[in-house]
């Protein structure tokens, strides 16, 4: 058996009393790239939030281990310190907290603090790679950022924090062609044996850059089918209906 960094089995979760995840099973091995697809409202973001530990999402069954540790009893900050990272579909603005201060606080919290000069150099380098203007250093995090700028800022945080596993929730949505390439290159540069990726997306284009090892389809709170990169192309061509039809038939 390969080294699993994330192992989800039978995960059930509710939000506002409504069951959204109805028994999710998913394994991601160390350093692998997985894609999670599925129709709108199937529970992809809910899974991402539940894994990250958002207090609104209540786990009602199943288990999740991360790097061999039981993830579920931990608060979000403890999960992050274990090496889990979420690129938000809709990043939150925090007026008054500058990008620089935020990143330093996060690095310090994760025990990855470095001398100020090194920190600033690294920040500069990563910002150049992601084509983020220097002025964003002192801007308040996500405050007044455009959709695309927010997405790039998420990847910047990823680059600075270097987690074990990054969940990218529709990081490719709303990006222009060039920005998509920049972001995808950024992610590709970071992933490798030390960092795996679970990318949530509706479009195969980002997957052409990322070359996922596995593609999973979530439907109505369950992973209904999994396959190789071809599965994404098939979905692009034919939509979800044929897959869901057979998958639903198979589980019936």
């Amino acid at each position: 058996m390969s080294q699993e960094v994330l192992s989800i089995s039978g995960l059930r979760a509710t939000v506002e009393g409504k069951e959204i995840l109805k028994g999710v099973d998913l394994q991601v091995a160390q350093g692998e790239i997985h894609a999670l697809m599925g129709p709108n409202g199937s529970g992809k973001s809910t899974l991402a939030y539940t894994l990250m530990g958002h207090p609104k999402y209540v786990v009602t069954g199943g288990s999740v281990t991360f790097g061999g540790e039981d993830l579920l009893p931990l608060t979000a900050d403890a999960r992050a310190r274990l090496g889990l990272f979420l690129c938000f579909q809709y990043p939150t603005a925090i007026p008054g907290v500058s990008t620089v201060n935020f990143l330093r606080a996060a690095l310090r919290a994760q025990g990855k603090e470095m001398p100020a000069r090194e920190f600033l150099n690294r920040l500069s380098t990563e910002m150049k790679e992601l084509k983020i203007d220097e002025s964003f250093r002192s801007r308040y995090i996500n405050d007044g950022f455009s959709g695309g700028e927010k997405k790039r800022m998420e990847i910047l945080q990823l680059a600075m924090l270097r987690p074990k596993l990054a969940i990218l929730d529709e990081t490719d949505s709303g990006l222009d062609v060039d920005a998509l390439r920049t972001v995808a290159d950024g992610v590709m540069r970071l992933c490798g044996p030390d960092m795996g990726v679970l990318v949530i997306t509706h479009y195969p284009r980002i997957l052409e850059h990322l070359h996922p090892d596995r593609v999973h389809v979530l439907h109505d709170g369950r992973v209904v089918t999994s396959g190789g990169a071809d599965l994404a192309r098939q979905i692009e061509r034919e939509g979800y209906e044929p897959i869901l039809g057979t998958a639903v038939a198979a589980t019936a």
Binding site: P55, D77, G96, A105
Partner: peptide, 25 residues
């Protein structure tokens, strides 16, 4: 809650997250 969650999802404790927001304010 979402601001606190965003900050804690980066490893910052809830108390420090609140302090960051307060200082920011």
């Amino acid at each position: 809650e979402d601001q606190i969650f965003y900050l804690t999802s980066r490893g910052i404790t809830e108390q420090d997250a609140t302090a960051l927001i307060v200082n920011g304010f």
